[in-house]
């Protein structure tokens, strides 16, 4: 599934419209503790988190993730979004809860770990 298809699936808005959204999402994860995410991060991952500060972008970029998903219409501050756009990291904002987002992703066959 591409980022674009994922965005439609979870009714998300792309917060980084300057970036391409044809990259394939390899797996999904949700957690708000950054060291846990560091331990699980994978290339192409879609990561759902309520954290919005700059370090979220740093963690996602270091792990080469495909996108970060903000649940429940949480707004990421502009400086974080600008940094993500600079680094080529897509940020999606969804009205759904983290639980519902992961439920839809799992139902569509997005795995826990990249194949």
């Amino acid at each position: 599934m591409t980022i674009a298809e994922l965005a439609a699936l979870i009714e998300a808005e792309n917060q980084t419209p300057s970036l391409p959204i044809d990259r394939t999402v390899s797996c999904g994860y949700t957690c708000d503790l950054l060291s846990w995410v560091m331990a699980h991060g994978e290339e192409g991952m879609a990561w759902v988190t309520v954290q919005t500060h700059m370090n979220v972008v740093a963690v996602a970029v270091l792990a080469d993730m495909a996108c970060v998903i903000m649940p429940e219409n949480i707004d990421m501050p502009k400086e974080s979004i600008d940094k993500a756009a600079d680094e080529g990291l897509v940020i999606l904002k969804s009205p759904l809860t983290a639980y519902a987002i992961c439920g839809r992703m799992a139902a569509q066959g997005i795995p826990e770990k990249a194949e």
Binding site: L33, L34, S35, W36, M38, Q51, V56
Partner: peptide, 15 residues
């Protein structure tokens, strides 16, 4: 509050 402090950093390094 920023999501640090899980106590996983040093174990992650060692691993």
């Amino acid at each position: 509050s920023l999501g640090f402090g899980a106590g996983m950093g040093l174990p992650n390094m060692k691993r």
